[in-house]
Design a protein around this nucleic acid. Structure first.
Length: 573
RNA sequence: CGGGGCGUAGCGCAGCCCGGUAGCGCACCUGCCUUGGGCGCAGGGGGUCGCAGGUUCGAAUCCUGUCGCCCCGACCA
């Protein structure tokens, strides 16, 4: 491509509405333009990179034996009503209505569509397994779109769905997809970790997330020496039990205006772990009282999973008052047994005297004992791991880091096949439900993550396999005949060899060309100028290391081709 | 949805408190000049000041409403 003819609006200054480096650089480098919150156009450079990522994904998917399809973006609401997600998916689901007042959804994911497709064709165990994928646009009405392509309302995703006769067959595919994902992210030049994760609205049981490590990432990762790694929504941790305490008599204590854990702990001169927080939430319609230690945060994802995946919301002050008889800030489990479903965090011990709310204004209870004052019935892991917690497997303190979720693989089991009646006949002639897996990759998010992970003060530094172009030719002075001719000849030779080259044939000052070249981040730059030509050489400059190699004019094409091929090979191996 | 901030030329911003001719830098156009890290000089084009009402002789500026955008929290590829 000739820069003089390219649609490539680069900017000197950061856009005012961008926060993340990757977002700023994508806008500055002329890759991306916004139309509305979370809705973007990809410009030629941005789309080239995206297509390269998609192609890597496609190649690796094909290698696993998966087959590519294209599912509809807009789907009839009926399919979503079948699985219950028309109601359960909530506000994040974009809904549409046609001229006949029929409801549709803009697909945020495609379990319904693919299951509908597969159930109408799979009859026998001989038709299984199947593994189908697509690369397509997804719509999610995010509560808060932000960070450019990182969290958009419309984005490009690769989603795959596999169908099996049983768990064992699913496991095979799951492992193969898991491995393919690692290959994909490695080929994209990304540094990443795989963690155990929460399954959220997709549902299902076992699942893993692929996180590109970056300080700007929204996800928190817990990892320990033994190899255990998990997202903060699901990280399990070990805790040290407190020594058994002598049972003291339950007592009321006036705690005027002391509502928060900090206030109560300070007022009573006890550590926050002595307190129990009692939180009222609503699952489907049923109110829940979740009880967690005062020094830990309730993990809504863990609670939701314990409850079977229904979305949760915290009760309002009025609802709390109605359910417990006391105001917000003074809720406690004592006396509510049988009136409300109580779930007690696993780290709360019998044999310890706790402080809880008294369900009355300005009142807390002392010496509350699990088993004596509160039924210890329903126990679950309800809290989020925190800095300093130890690994549940090896007991070592876990390291905390941040990451960007770029891929997620799930074992769905029969969650969708059951509700949508996707069945087959096994070898004995018995009708059975198909076992499913699903596998997602945020294609446009990978583009953002790659920049997030590889940039400097001058701009983007692309890994060769996903770079928009492989080499950027800069004739220092395009008006100087020998310079121009040498650049043109090199450009032609590279095109001939199938190398993706960008030629800056604009009548710009050298400085402007160099700045744009750094901003665009093409891995290899060839500088051609009178100075070098006087010595019979051109310069090859590495964007990442800034290392410059002087090459005889006649060898330039060969040298560039070798460098590009080498860089592509290293990334693939 | 709750909390905070911002809408003035393509981009980045000033002007608003204290009402009276709409400005600056970059970008763009023309000419000259210049060519190894965003050259220089001269001339020029471009605005319903987000939108709608109100106050006023007069509103970018004050008041009310509304829409949009950004940041912090709950959602996720």
């Amino acid at each position: 491509m000739r820069l003089s003819q390219a649609f490539l609006p680069t900017l000197k200054e950061d856009p005012a509405d961008a926060e993340l480096v990757s977002h700023k650089l994508m806008v500055r480098a002329g890759m991306l333009r916004k139309h509305a919150a979370g809705i973007y156009s990809l410009l030629p450079i941005g789309w080239r990179v995206t297509k390269k990522v998609a192609q890597i994904v496609r190649e690796e998917m094909d290698r696993t034996g998966a087959q590519e399809v294209l599912l509809p973006i807009m789907m009839p609401a009926e399919l979503w009503k079948e699985t219950g997600r028309w109601e359960k998916y909530g506000k994040e689901l974009f809904r549409q209505r046609d001229r006949h007042d029929r409801d549709y959804v803009l697909g945020p994911t495609h379990e319904e569509a693919i299951t509908d497709l597969v159930r109408s064709h799979v009859r026998s165990y001989r038709d299984l397994p199947q593994n189908l994928y697509q690369i397509g646009v997804k719509f999610r009405d995010e509560i808060r779109p932000r960070f450019g392509l990182m969290r958009a309302r419309e984005f490009l995703m690769k989603d795959a769905y596999s169908f099996h006769v049983d768990e064992a067959q699913l496991n095979e595919t799951y492992e193969r997809m898991h491995a393919a994902y690692s290959t994909i992210f490695r080929r994209c030049g990304l540094t990443f970790v795989v963690v155990e994760a929460d399954s959220g609205a997709i549902g299902g049981d076992v699942n893993h997330e692929f996180m590109v490590t970056a300080d700007s990432g929204e996800a928190e990762i817990f990892a320990s020496a033994c190899g255990y790694a998990a997202s903060s929504e699901s990280a399990k941790f070990a805790w040290k039990p407190f020594p058994e305490e002598k049972a003291e008599a339950l007592a009321e204590k006036e705690t005027p205006e002391k509502r928060t854990v900090e206030e109560v702990a300070a007022f009573l001169h006890v550590m926050p772990d002595r307190l129990l927080k009692s939180l009222v939430l609503f699952g489907d319609d049923e109110p829940i009282l979740a009880i967690v230690p005062g020094d830990r945060e309730l993990n809504e994802a863990k609670l939701a999973r314990h409850l079977g995946g229904a979305p949760l919301r915290l009760a309002t002050g009025a609802e709390i008052e109605q359910l417990t008889g006391g105001p917000l800030g003074f809720t406690g489990p004592v006396g509510l047994g049988g009136k409300i479903r109580m779930i007690v965090d696993a780290t709360i011990q019998e044999g310890r005297n706790y402080v809880t709310g008294g369900n009355r204004r300005d009142t807390h209870l002392l010496n509350v004992r699990l088993g004596r004052d509160v039924t210890a019935g329903e126990r679950a892991d309800l809290t989020t791991a925190k800095e300093g917690d130890r690994c549940a497997r090896c007991g070592e303190v876990m390291a905390v880091s941040r990451g960007i979720e770029v891929g997620h693989v799930f074992k769905l089991g029969t969650k969708y096949s059951e509700s949508m009646a996707a069945r087959f006949l096994d070898a004995e002639g018995t009708e059975r439900t198909i076992v499913m897996g699903c596998y997602g990759i945020g294609v446009t998010r990978i583009v953002a993550a790659a920049i997030e992970q590889s940039n400097d003060e001058n701009g983007i530094i692309w890994p060769m396999p996903i770079a928009p172009y492989q080499v950027h030719i800069v004739p220092v002075n395009a008006k100087e005949a020998r310079t121009r001719e040498t650049a043109e000849a090199l450009y032609a030779a590279l095109m001939e060899a199938g190398i993706e080259a960008l030629l800056d044939d604009r009548d710009e000052r050298p400085g402007a060309k160099f700045k744009d070249a750094d901003l665009l981040g093409v891995p290899l730059r060839v500088t051609i100028g009178e100075k070098g030509l006087a010595d019979g050489i051109v310069e090859l400059r590495d964007r990442k290391t800034s290392a410059v190699v002087r090459v005889p004019v006649g060898d330039a094409a060969t040298a560039v081709i070798a460098r590009v091929r080498e860089a592509l090979k290293t990334a693939t191996s």
